[in-house]
């Protein structure tokens, strides 16, 4: 019994040390923005002394960069999520609820998309977007990213919709409802948790996406956070306290979102991966 307790203590201490190592890089950033320029060089990993809010003030007060990036990231991610949810739900409903021939082949056609990462198609995509006049446009990023998120979303949603018993649908049609009624009154309310999973997967993929906007967006006024951070750290190469403050402000929304909903985020991301 004593050894068991001792084992638990060792386990706790070991876990805590690993947690410290894993999170310290993030902590360095969160503290870095509060440091004065001198301290970031003399004591890059320590506690801010004296702490200053000046750098944050400068970034938030300036019109331009930071707010523009946040706006673009929210705009692009929001539009991507909306398109994926609507298109994938409609397609999955058709693939799982309307009994028709050739359904299975179409499903497999979408699932094949899981084999094509964005990187593999990036050059022809660039030419394709150019011929549509979408280079330089946020919609070039949105549509492409939405398309690449369809396979996993359709896979998850179709799997879920298939589990809804056909008796429910029959009951609905006996009561005079069309498939649209069934869709609105039964399927959408039932699928809230699985829609949350899809939203989280698409959110993370879209929010962090770098290569696609790097190729598509040329005007800095359209830049998203990853592009902006890349550009900012090139511009302020020696102003590490500024870069840290900038990164802190950029990841703050994600940190809040993550620690508030961590269970859903972790389960959602891994569920998607395991099913994929």
């Amino acid at each position: 019994m004593v050894t068991k307790k001792r084992y638990e203590v060792i386990r706790f201490i070991l876990s805590a040390i690993i947690a410290f190592i894993m999170f310290y890089p993030i902590l360095t950033v969160l503290m870095g923005g509060f440091k004065e320029k001198g301290q970031i060089f003399s004591d890059p990993f320590g506690i801010p002394n004296p702490p200053t809010l000046q750098t944050f003030g400068e970034i938030l007060g300036a019109t331009g960069t930071y707010w523009t990036l946040i706006f673009n990231s929210v705009y692009i991610t929001g539009a991507t999520i909306a398109i994926v949810i609507v298109f994938a739900m409609l397609a999955s409903a058709a693939l799982s609820r309307i009994r028709i021939r050739g359904q299975k082949a179409l499903f497999n056609f979408f699932i094949m998309g899981l084999l094509f990462p964005l990187t593999v198609a990036i050059l022809p995509l660039f030419l394709q977007l150019r011929s549509f006049g979408l280079i330089g446009s946020r919609w070039g990023v949105i549509l492409t990213q939405a398309a690449f998120n369809l396979p996993i979303s359709i896979f998850i949603l179709t799997g879920f919709f298939r589990q809804i018993p056909f008796e429910l649908q029959d009951a609905c049609s006996i009561d005079g409802g069309t498939i649209l009624t069934f869709f609105r009154k039964i399927m959408i309310p039932l699928s809230t948790p699985v829609l949350a999973t899809v939203t989280i997967i698409v959110f993370v993929a879209s929010w962090n996406q770098f290569m696609l906007p790097l190729l598509v967006l040329s005007d800095t006024s359209h830049f998203t956070i990853p592009l902006g951070v890349m550009q900012y750290q090139g511009q302020y190469a020696s102003g590490w306290n500024q870069i840290m403050a900038f990164i802190t402000l950029s990841i703050l929304p994600v940190i809040i979102f993550y620690f508030a909903l961590q269970r859903y985020v972790i389960d959602g991301l891994t569920a998607g991966a395991v099913k994929g």
Partner: peptide
């Protein structure tokens, strides 16, 4: 129901590959 997803997927994923 299937058309929007199918078109988007074909144009931006399958065709470029």
């Amino acid at each position: 129901f299937i058309a929007p997803a199918l078109i988007l997927f074909s144009v931006f994923v399958v065709a470029p590959v």
